[in-house]
Structure formats: C-alpha cells, structure tokens
Design a protein around this nucleic acid. Structure first.
Lengths: 229, 229
DNA sequence: CAATGACAGACCGGCAGTCGGTCATTTTAA
DNA sequence: TTAAAATGACCGACTGCCGGTCTGTCATTG
C-alpha cells in the first residue's frame, strides 16, 4: 500500500474518529485494531506509532469527548458576575441549549453509549468527564459556600458527589432509550423526566439549597432530546 | 488426568472460588481460563460445561458476592417493629458490625477490588449489589414516606439514587488504600472518614431528613477497617 | 546528507472458545 | 435383579483470531 504521511495530530485525530465510530457501533471489546486501521487506512505499525495500545485509544477518546463537551459549556462562564446559584443554573441552561441544538447527533451517540455492551465505554467517558468538570464545579460550589448559600462541609467533595450522582441516571436513560419506538415510549419519557427532576432535587438538597433551586430540565426538554432523529 | 465427577453445584462453586481468588489477585482481564481450570482441577470442556464464557463467570461471581453481602444484613430486618429511620440505622449498624467482625478479610478484598485494573470487577459487584439491595431499601424508604418522615417524590428512585451514590466514594476509598503503609496513611484515613460522613449527610438530605439522622460511620470505624490486617 | 520520526506489514505468542469423544450415574425396561 | 439406554459431567487437542512486536523503509527537516 502507498505510504501516506500526515501530521501526527491529524493522524491521531483520524484514528480516534474511526475508533469512535466503531466503538459506538459494535462496542469497545468487539472492535479490533485491524478494523480501526482498515477504516483509517493506516498500518499496524502506524497505529502503534501513535497509540501504545487499544486501551490507550479508549482513554484518549474518552478524554477528547469529555473535553469537547466541557469546553463549549464552561468557557463563557468566568466572565459573568453572577452569584454561585446563578452561575450553576446558567451553566446548566447552556448545557441544555447545546444539547437541544444538536439533539439528533446526541441521540445517536446516546443510542450507542447506553447499550449494555458499551458500559465500559460509558464509564470511561463518564470518568473523564468528571475529571474535567470537577475543578469547574468545585469552584462554583466554593463560591456558593463563601456566599453562605451552599451549605456543604467540603466544596471539592461536594462536587465529586454531585458529579458521580449523574451516573445514577444511567439506568433510567437506558430504559428510555430501549423503550423508544415502542408503545411504551411516552411513558418511558415521562418516567425519565420525573427521574431527572428528582435528580435536580437531590442536588439541591446535597448542596443545602431549597428544593427547586437548580433546574436540570425544563418543560419538554427530555422529550425533545429523546425523540430527536 | 483422572476424571472426577462432582455435584454441579459443588463444581460451579469451586470454579467461582478459584476465579474469585485469581480475579482478586491479578484482575479480571489478566486472568486466563487456563489459570482458573488449572487451579480448580477441571478441564476446558468441564469449565465450558458449567459456564458459557469467562464473562459469565464474572457475572455469577458478582451476583454471589452481592447476595452473600446482603443476606447476612437483610434477614434480621423484617421482624423489628421499628420506624423507617430506625430500621435504616439498624441496618447500617449491622452492616458495620459485620464489617468489623471480619475486617481483615474485608481489607484484603478491598485491596484487590479497588485496584485500578479491577475497575470492571468493582462495577460488576457494585451493580449486582445495587440490584439485590434495591427492593430492600425501597421498602424502607416507602415506609418512611408513609410515616411522613422521608420526603421524596418516589421511593424506588430514591433508593436507586442513594445506592448509586455509594459508588461516589470509590475514589476516596481507593486513595486511602493506596496511602496505607505510607506516612500519609493517617491523613488519608481522616480524609476518608470525613468523606464518609459527608456521604451520610448527603443521604440524609436526599431523603429529606435532618442533617445527622443517618449514621454511616461511628468513631474509629474507618480507621478500624482500614488498618485491619 | 545525516538524523529523526512517520509508517509499512510480516510475524508471534497466547487467548477464548469449539468439538468430538469418553466415562460415570441415573433411568428405564425386561 | 439386571442389563441397556439415556443423560450429563468431564476431557483435551485443536483453531481462529487478536493484541502486540519487530525489522525495517520512506519522507521530512535541519
């Protein structure tokens, strides 16, 4: 095969693109390196020149996804002169906005990541997301502490707990995805919506805020995301 | 090799014992079926007669561990005429008691399960535990709801959230284990203890209880478990 | 024109899983 | 009571394939 030389960043990025597509399609375990390099048009040697192992690709992919997600939400945050609760809600509102903006793609990704055989993939992405989000959220919580509004013994620990709590919605989301297309779809979306509201309530309470302070969902949000095509 | 026939339950149990020892020792991924069958004294065919795959062994092991853990804690629960909060605290106290009773073994298991390469093992056990604990906890919470003490919109969802929240302590426990034996051990145990108290506080709040209602740790508990040999 | 780094691809050890067959135990039938 | 048939526990050689290695070769840069 002809030898094609590309800038390392490009090659690495292309390899991640192909790996992502295949991992999402058939799961991490069921994807072989041969499939990845075939799709990317690179040799075995080329692949291992850029990534030390299959595992390393997964790690890099998780980090990329997490950073992509967070950078678009967190950048516009520092400027605002809002109080902590305001910042947190603005943060969440911006996240919802971005989710709605490309709901179809998000939905496709969800279909993949929430499949049972992709649980490892999910956890890697989740862990990477928590890692990048942790300092951001911890600072907001610390601010809320200083303002005397958030009542927690430790801002960083609180951030860790709150972020980990997100994983508890995994099963509920998976159920909703599974039900989509069936006659249970409506009920499943309703159930997921209630679940997400409860999740918001739980975060309120953990942070020592009055019930309903934090808005995780808005009317129609869950349905809009889950029915996107 | 001579052919030894045993009752299927015995064989399966022995295979699980060996798999557990090896998974704990070198991790799930790094354990081969050949190692398992060598240790158990069974042939390849014998193994696959009882378990469909290596994955199936992991699943069976996780379920067994979860059921073992829950049956010793949950059985003495039904009789008591306590209110929900009392039951929950009695439940937790009994769990602590059992943990202290064989702290050394528990500590050994922790050393294994909380190693980074055993994260898959951890999650399987955790998921299985949540599955068996969910109905137990959900009933207690429902009782507390009926008593007007627990303020949650949905008992089952609350149970799910609370149980999932347990996983958020994973990293803190892992850090404490990693620090044991070093000069940071004391500080790490202190940090973990604070973290576990915060965890209890978070559960209080999620369930709508006054701070400090639920006791996850008692003085010296964390240190006793973490320094056991 | 070195030196470096990107890439090629044959190769290997080892792994999960298969398959045809064997032996012990229980069930059935005479 | 006993022989034969059926069942299912168990054996172990074998295979296909996969992740990873290794010895290079070619392109780019200073």
């Amino acid at each position: 095969m002809p030898r094609v030389v590309k800038h390392p960043d490009i090659r690495r990025s292309e390899l991640l693109d192909c790996a992502q597509a295949l991992f999402f399609e058939r799961g991490y375990e069921n994807t072989t390196i041969n499939e990845i390099i075939a799709k990317a048009g690179v040799s075995k040697g080329g692949f291992y020149h850029h990534y030390a192992s299959k595992e390393a690709v997964l790690e890099a992919l998780a980090v990329r996804l997490a950073e992509q997600a967070v950078e678009r939400v967190a950048d516009a945050d520092a400027d605002s002169g809002l109080d902590a609760l305001g910042r947190l809600n603005a943060f969440l509102a911006r996240a919802r906005r971005l989710k709605l903006d490309d709901a179809p793609r998000l939905r496709t990704a969800f279909d993949a990541v929430f499949r049972p055989e992709n649980i490892v993939l999910y956890h890697r992405i989740n862990t990477a997301s928590i890692t990048v989000m942790l300092p951001v959220l911890a600072r907001i919580i610390a601010q809320g502490q200083a303002e005397g509004v958030f009542k927690v013994p430790d801002a960083e620990a609180a951030a860790e707990i709150v972020l980990h709590l997100g994983a508890s919605t995994h099963d509920a989301v998976a159920r909703a995805i599974k039900a989509s297309g069936t006659e249970d779809e409506d009920a499943a979306i309703e159930a997921l919506d209630r679940r997400l509201r409860f999740h918001g309530l739980a975060v309120d309470r953990i942070l020592g805020l009055p019930d309903g302070s934090i808005q995780f969902v808005e009317p129609g949000f869950t349905r809009a995301v889950m029915t996107a095509r």
